[in-house]
Every structure is written in C-alpha cells, then in structure tokens.
Amino acid sequence: MDEILLKIDGLKKNFGSLQVLNGISTDIRRGEVVVMIGPSGSGKSTFLRCMNLLETPDSGSIWFDGVEIVKADEKTKNRVRSEMGMVFQHFNLFPHLSILDNITLAPKLVRGMDKATAEAKAMELLGRVGLADKARSYPQQLSGGQKQRVAIVRSLAMEPKVMLFDEPTSALDPEMVGEVLDVMKELAANKMTMVVVTHEMRFARDVASRVLFLEGGRIAEEGTSEQVFGAPKSERLKLFLGKL
C-alpha cells in the first residue's frame, strides 16, 4: 500500500479576480495529522475544500489513493467524497433527521448498509463520544459541542480514509471546545489520517505531525510542530505566531 494517501500538485483557485490558491503542492501520508494555520483569507479552508472537491480547483491535480480526482467523472467524485470525512465549522447536521438518522443516512444510502447494521455501528460510535443517550434526539436539542461530536461520528460512520476538519471549534462556546478537541485527539491517537484547519494552537502543537503555514494562497512555511512553533524561520510566521 502506498504510503501517500493524498498527493496534491500545483493547486490553483480563483474566486473572480481574487487568487485564493496560488499553486499549492504537498503530500499527505497515511496516519499523518496535518494542521493548517495562517491568517484569515490565506486559503486554508479553500485548500481543504478542494481536497474533497467541494470546491473545484482551476488547475492542478489531486491524487487520492493513487487516483486523480480533479478531472474524474461525477460517480468517482461521489465515491471519493464518501471515503473522506469532513467536519464543518457550523456542524451542518440535518435538522429534520434524528441524531441516529443523521449518522445512518449515508451508510444506508451510499454504502447500501442494512438498517440494523448501520444503527448498531452508529450506536457504538455515539457511545465512544459519550452521546449514546442522544440517538433519538434532534440536532436542535443539542449543544454546539454535542452537535460537533455527532458531526464527527456521522463522518466516521462512513469509515473514511481521511478526516478533514474545517475550523471545527471556531463556532463553539469556549467551554465546549475541549470536548471536541478530545475526540479529535483520540482519533489522532488511533492513527486516523487527519487534515485540520484550526486556530487552536495548543492542539496544533500537541497533536500535529506536520504544520503548514499558509499565506497568500501558498504554503509559506512547513515543518514539525517543534520546528514551526519552536523555531519559525520566516518573519511572516513569527509575526503571525506573535499576534496570537
């Protein structure tokens, strides 16, 4: 099995006349936890959203598990997305479905899993994040931290090869950030491949196997968390870290 799960080469993306991604290349290895930091507008979220093709890059290539996906057909893209989990800043749970149905929807529809198996798996995952008693509740009845834990479980139910996190704690009240980060830390400890956009520098420092500092749509600096936080090289990164 190839050690590289995601290979990204020369990714460019414009929104109108604004160049958001300016030629990004990097490899994401299996089991790696890559944390992206950088000022707002630096392209972190867009880069993440290009990985599962929620945004279509203008040019450049992405290989997922050895298959080029930017120019792939719609069916391949759907399959690829089903193999990548994504957690959003605003949770995006489905408000008209119970927690259990939120989690089992995709396994049933996309994977053709039968109801009993899907629900058993969902209950096991909910138990792991301490929310088994919420299975019959609706998203509206949950706190932000609980919603985000459910959103993580919803992604995990598809047994993804990689989990993408787009500022998963930015919309949470401060006292709920910890419970979500704990779940993410446990995932990292279990060797889940993760790409995380976050402003939680302590999380980045503690969990990241590699940190990318983005600026102006490029990777301006990268390295282990010790290198990036302990001995930043560029003035821009020093300035960014100094402001936090």
Binding site: L54, M86, F88, H90, N92, A106, A151, R154, M158
Partner: peptide, 18 residues
Amino acid sequence: IDPGQMEAARALGLSYWR
C-alpha cells in the same frame, strides 16, 4: 436552506440529486 446542508450531504458521498 443553508448551503452547508448540501455541502454536508455531498461530503458524505451523496449525489446531487439524492
């Protein structure tokens, strides 16, 4: 409907029509 709803569904691998 919040565009995030469609994004979340697509990110789970559901087709546009589904």
